[in-house]
Amino acid sequence: MTKIFIQLKLILVAVLLVSLMTSCYSDRSKRNLEYAPNMYNSLPLEPFSQTEYWETHMGGNYAAVKGSDQKALKEVNFKYGMSMQKPVEGTVPRGDSWYYKNDHKLPWEPYPYPNTAEGYEEAGVELDFPAGFDKDDPTVKKRGEELYTTFCVNCHGPNGQAKGNLMTSGKFVGVPAYEVRMKGLPVGKMYHTLTYGKGVMGSHAWQLTPRERWEVISYILKWKPADE
């Protein structure tokens, strides 16, 4: 009998020593063990979450919306089971209507110009800096510079010469220098371009609020050649 115990002890020591070297959480492609996951995962939908996310990805014991309600939710309120949905067409975020038409503030009206050649021309004629927005204010320009170095500098470059990192490495082509393209370009057209994109430039409306778009424009105006 003692012989068996001795052998068992030896095995136990070996197992313990080996397990001390490793840890329980060894497969890093899976989530670790969670104690009381319903304290970790939100009952209301978080931004960028899925209605059945916790069930499918986080261990299967918790879901914001259960069972049969899921199907209805996915079809009616949360298409594809996502919490991130497109706002209803024409929605304007509260306090965020920062386009103005002929100095007249229209706080609850969505951007009126369509994404067409005519819309571009119209915006060029009618759209201007909003009333009460001081484009020469240094804090506005500073904010514009920060935004420029985040969102524009990759292509348009630190000096507006279209010598950004993506351009000099040859990965992206076709961005003109500001001093060429901005000759006689009204700010309304710049705003329109930031909103919808133009040519190979995509829309930046997702990243820049209307106010931020005007701030960027107030900054890049320093590279605009003087009108003759």
Partner: peptide, 28 residues
């Protein structure tokens, strides 16, 4: 490519969530 983190994760300066970029940002 030295793209700023905030180019895609724009929410880091604006909200609680950092935002996962929608695909139109990739398309830029």
């Amino acid at each position: 490519n030295q793209i700023d983190c905030k180019y895609c994760h724009t929410g880091t300066t604006k909200s609680k969530s950092a935002w996962i970029p929608s695909v139109n940002v990739c398309m830029n």
